[in-house]
Design a protein around this nucleic acid. Sequence first.
DNA 1: CAATCTGATTGAAAGGTTTCAATTGATGTT
DNA 2: AACATCAATTGAAACCTTTCAATCAGATTG
Lengths: 340, 340
Amino acid sequence: MGSSMKDVATLASVSLGTVSNVLNHPELVAPDTAARVHRAIRELEFIPNAPARQLRSHHARVLGLVVPDISNPFFTEVARGVEDAALDAGYVVILCNSDAQAEREDRYLAVLESQRVGGILITPARKSLKPLGRLLGNGVAVTLLDNEAPAQDVCSASVDDRMGGALAAEHALKLGHRRLVWLAGPTDIPQVADREVGLMNAVRSAGASVQRLAAEHMTTASGEMAMEAALSQGMEFTALVCANDLLALGAIRALNRAGLRIPDDISVIGYDDIEFAASAAVPLTSVRQPKYELGHAAARLVISECEDPASHAHQRVQFQPQLVARQSSAPVSASETLGR
Amino acid sequence: MGSSMKDVATLASVSLGTVSNVLNHPELVAPDTAARVHRAIRELEFIPNAPARQLRSHHARVLGLVVPDISNPFFTEVARGVEDAALDAGYVVILCNSDAQAEREDRYLAVLESQRVGGILITPARKSLKPLGRLLGNGVAVTLLDNEAPAQDVCSASVDDRMGGALAAEHALKLGHRRLVWLAGPTDIPQVADREVGLMNAVRSAGASVQRLAAEHMTTASGEMAMEAALSQGMEFTALVCANDLLALGAIRALNRAGLRIPDDISVIGYDDIEFAASAAVPLTSVRQPKYELGHAAARLVISECEDPASHAHQRVQFQPQLVARQSSAPVSASETLGR
DNA sequence: CAATCTGATTGAAAGGTTTCAATTGATGTT
DNA sequence: AACATCAATTGAAACCTTTCAATCAGATTG
């Protein structure tokens, strides 16, 4: 079975406390003693017991990552950023998919609290941050991921969603489109709401029109359904801006099935710029977010708070999105322009 | 701060041991005592300290999931299966991307050992299972994921990769193709090797020819590079079978850039049937694997071993793959057939 | 030479649980 | 009435660390 510090101490003929010092305060121990202890550690293949350590020190190198859905390539990439930053710091990441359901999120938060994680990275399933209050009270470092912190007591790392919405709209407007559709996701997702605000402002100030269409979830399946329903009701437009790439990919399927060509009949603009956007049926114009960097930055924030809560100052890091034009968007056709 | 079992015991006027019994052996405690304790738990918002519990009981409801790359939608979906099974059983999953690098895998295994996880689900980065020996010796439940267990001392959940390779080959052969290319990944990945065996056998016994092309990693980028190199060397063929969908998606880009049409000039067959295979430039014919089920089954195996190591019998679960025909594969063209 | 200081090491307590042998009180048996 | 049985509860030890006050041996100082 695994050996403990006691075994190491015995083999190296020192006390338990000295072994602990070798591990945690090497500056306190004489070089040759340290060498002896290290030899014993190697000999016994001693691996510290993290739970025991955490019990005594109240310091855990474990992070909880709570995201709506890791199947969404956006979050997959964010998760990679989180994980790499965590591993660098000797931390480990517990993956929690909330499916954007409050109930599931609550269950996970309880489990994470029970596990006494040092920090939590969360893209909340709902606006209220109440459920996080308990955690904060118990000294857990919380960082909001892809959401801007509303209050002063947490860090956050996010991307400017209003600007992203505006970028998408301006791209469509610049191509001459006047009749847009905004394919939104659930209204209570803050990212969606912000993108919508940015888009609406841009469209209005250009005097163009935009219709709102809501998908139930941020998935291809939902996007396909929503677009199919809209088309069957005779909705007319020349450009479609989607709250994320999955919705766009789904909507494109419905559009194709209805005999509409992209970008000839309809220009489509996605959001996130997931890897598959580039290999889609028609390479997708999209608003790129620095996904990996977002996760990486968020993890570094939360880790720094874990390491030294006392001197930690809460921060909000915000990244800028960027429009990537591909074949799915094109100037509005002449017939369309005249057709009105 | 969080309250402990001692606080609960005091409030409910019982001993510590009784509180523990309420939590772990409710059958031993009188109904009204239990009720009193539960009231106290609710009152104090007591949440058990999992690390302390694990320290004493040597039983942790924590799993390590080690995969090459969660960005690969195949593993994303597998991970969802793992996570759902875990949450159902009150377990939590630590996500570890090995990037298929032995060094990174070793680092993670050490961290997982330090965390004293109850079980590990792993798609090994290399053939040797040596590094797992230590863990097994220390009583950690190990289950091989998407790999068949070679020995008796671990469980495994996998998909029949030889059959998958054969399915892909037979599909191409049935469509009349006689000059195939097998776009393989790194040779030391067992899944790739097995698929290759299945494919080669099928092709040979049909008397057709197949050339082997190797990509460095199982990614779109690698697929694109490999195919580009092959084309620039004048490789000729009518059907391309890929070791996974990402390679296929990448290869298709290179093929398109070279002016080749799919499926008119080249039929392409992928492997995994990731969600994006269906929305690709040309919907991709692929070998479907029950990804979610694979993860779910593997997690259930490892959890059952965690819960009751004594009565646990190691098992190998194997799923069957299935060919999904889409537009990327078509009968070999007449000119091609005659051209030989 | 006594007193003080410094650096290295030690020993014991504490952290929150589970486990198990021991105790208690009530019920049933002879 | 004495005893055995049984269910419920208790108390203390154990799990493996970290922490910190206390000790010790030398070196430095006055």
